[in-house]
Design a protein around this nucleic acid. Structure first.
Lengths: 171, 171
DNA sequence: GAAAATTACTTTATGTCTAAATTATTAACG
DNA sequence: CGTTAATAATTTAGACATAAAGTAATTTTC
């Protein structure tokens, strides 16, 4: 994923380099988006970096495995691409890699010969389990300074946002 | 940016395909992150798509121009890479493209012959202005269903999160 | 003031992601 | 039936991103 924009900061005037220069007051939507993106990007970079140094893997692969791990019987590639919010071609490429590494296997779908089902191998499941444990710890540590109340407030607010976004989605 | 994970949804049981399967209660940090990422990814995809169809350009280029537009005298590439939160190599590549398109120009920095200053051309400035106006409208429309109170609450909560993240940043 | 370290940018190799075209299979309709 | 639509996966071309190494200029340090 790429990294974008930059959040302005009313409460951090000591970091002028990060101001987005949105001094006008009616840019609320833009400012909200930039701040959301800044937070998301920063967390993402931490996770990426950790996955690389600790497990020599990447975030897309981790995401792939994370989704797949929820379905012991496997998933159609098409379904997986929807869950991951990426294109089918991308899933094809990631699948090729993970199959080559022996973490995932392709199985023909007997009910529809166009479809392929992918599922974790035993090794894939084992590897993912270790990564998932670490992944959770990283996040807990990263977000530890956020008091539990703020965290659940934020979680709730993001829930509202997600709902709003899902409206435009189908349009 | 790539798109990752998926948010579970306590309040949206009608979209089972998007559940992240985090039914345990002590995965708060992970759930918060996934929800944040889901929202961020969805907005990002809308903006990307609009930039492509309406302006035949990309989000990285828009971000580049957006930062640069704040500095009429231009910026060192190094500084720009920090603002954009991307690597120097990336800025080199984007600069090459935007220079080729005539939107940006490279100027030698007289104070430091290692450095290059990039700045918008007149055309670049004009093109960006049109994009920025549209960009803001897209966001306003996208977030319109979010009542103003929720929006500023969310903005505040994200401010706290950003502050928390900035702590780990230097460590 | 010369050697060492740092800094700014570029280059290279690799990975990720998209959009669009292709192939193969299935479904739908007259 | 048989033609047409739609669907699932793959392939291709291109944009974007990183990390790591290379080049050139500047600073630091002794």
């Amino acid at each position: 994923m790429d990294k974008h924009h930059l959040d302005s900061s009313i409460d951090m005037p000591d970091t002028p380099g990060r101001e987005a220069g949105l001094s006008d007051s009616d840019h609320q939507a833009v400012r909200l988006w930039l701040r959301l993106l800044t937070c998301s990007t920063q967390i993402e970079q931490v996770i990426r970096s950790q996955l690389r140094t600790e497990f020599s893997t990447t975030l897309p692969r981790f995401d792939y495995l994370a989704q797949l791990s929820r379905f012991p019987k496997g998933l159609r590639m098409k379904t997986l691409s929807e869950y991951l919010m990426v294109t089918g071609g991308n899933v094809t490429g990631l699948t090729d890699q993970l199959v080559a590494e022996g973490w995932v296997e392709r199985v023909a779908d007997e009910e529809d010969r166009r479809a392929m089902i992918v599922r974790l191998t035993r090794m894939g499941r084992k590897q993912f389990k270790a990564m998932a444990t670490a992944h959770e710890q990283w996040l807990q540590q990263l977000l530890a300074p956020l008091d539990s109340g703020s965290a659940s407030d934020l979680y709730e607010q993001l829930g509202k946002l997600r709902q709003v976004l899902s409206l435009s989605e189908g349009a």
